[in-house]
């Protein structure tokens, strides 16, 4: 209805409908009060217009009862708005556990997308209908903002850290993807499309069957490729991480199973090994030293692109704690050294 009137963008996600419902509530309440105030002012202006220069007006100093009424009633309504908005916000901030994972890196002036399964694209994001998709965002340079009006979601891509957003598309089609945070000359050209597909089409596309319609400028970066874990494993070996972090090695902490768990640090504090922690440990290893280890790891700052860091993190997350296969792991470790 609202969409047909051209008052709202396409409602193409589960959250879109909820956001528009909240908006309708806000607009309705506001219209009621605006009209009430405007009508009162107009009525007073007509009824009490100046009839004579000698008009005498009464001294009315106010009314505490009225003051309380028009403070408390708006406050109550405001708290309803707050609660509703906060509830929706929590929904927006909590991706379902089974969400598909997509990495998006902003860069002046393009969006670079990596699917977990390996496909990469520029300024386009293909997703299946009816499945939650979690987007992990960062930026290679300045702050950008990932904005899909049809999904009513927006999240800044901040350099130096990860932020996340999620959505579940409910309608096949392609929708605007905008950069909403001013980022320089071609800010208004940093736009792309989110393409919502049937699950089968999406699987075919993911397998490399579909031709990515990314612009020519994207060059070889778009199109198919290794899956993220394999790419990460290759980097892990290439960059020499394997020397100190392979199973059984003693110079660096074991990485299998570390992701998402608590890590005890040198100074006695603990930290949860989330994506940001893993990223920091790769790029600024001296920032947080794991208990029992020396601060000997070199920094990889400037040697890895944001996409490569994300690949390494995907690989680290893929390593399963394998108590049962300890001997096998140890064996590999020995041959490795």
């Amino acid at each position: 209805m609202l969409e047909r009137l051209g008052l709202v963008p396409p409602q193409a996600s589960t959250v879109a409908v909820q956001t528009d419902l909240l908006s309708t509530f806000l607009v309705t309440v506001s219209l009621f009060f605006s009209i009430l105030i405007a009508a009162t002012i107009v009525a007073f202006s007509v009824k009490y217009r100046r009839r004579s220069e000698r008009d005498v007006t009464p001294r009315i100093h106010g009314s505490t009862a009225l003051e309380i009424a028009w403070s408390v009633i708006p406050l109550g309504i405001a708290m309803v708005m707050f609660g509703w908005g906060a509830h929706l916000f929590v929904t927006l901030k909590r991706p379902p556990d089974d969400a598909l994972q997509v990495n998006v890196v902003g860069k002046q002036w393009m969006w670079k997308v990596q699917h977990l399964e390996g496909r990469r694209e520029i300024n386009e994001l293909h997703v299946p209908i009816g499945r939650p998709v979690k987007v992990t965002l960062t930026s290679e340079d300045v702050i950008h903002s990932f904005y899909v009006p049809a999904f009513r979601i927006k999240q800044d891509a901040v350099p130096g850290r990860y932020t996340t957003a999620w959505f579940e598309a409910t309608r096949i089609g392609s929708y605007h993807l905008f950069c909403a945070e001013y980022c320089g000359t071609m800010h208004s050209g940093m736009i792309g499309q989110v393409i919502v597909m049937e699950p089968a089409d999406y699987e075919a596309w993911l397998a490399g069957g579909g031709v990515s319609a990314a612009p020519a400028a994207a060059g070889g970066a778009a199109g198919g490729g290794q899956d993220l874990v394999a790419a990460g494993k290759e980097l892990f070996e290439q960059k020499g991480c394997v020397t100190c972090h392979q199973p059984g090695a003693v110079l660096g902490p074991q990485l299998a199973g570390v992701a998402g768990h608590t890590v005890e640090l040198q100074d006695g504090t603990t930290v949860t090994a989330d994506d940001d922690y893993l990223r920091e440990s790769i790029l600024s290893p001296a920032a947080k030293i794991v208990k029992g280890f020396a601060p000997i790891m070199p920094t990889f700052k400037g040697q890895l692109t944001e996409e490569q860091v994300l690949q390494l993190i995907a690989y680290i997350k893929s390593l399963k704690p394998s108590t049962g296969d300890a001997s096998a792991d140890a064996g590999t470790g020995k041959t490795g050294s």
């Binding site: 956001t19 405001a78 908005g85 929706l88 916000f89 927006l92 009513r152 927006k154 909403a180």
Partner: peptide, 15 residues
Amino acid sequence: VFLATLGFDVHVHDT
């Protein structure tokens, strides 16, 4: 007040 409403602001922030 709309913009102070969290879920609403996500959509219209920076628009």
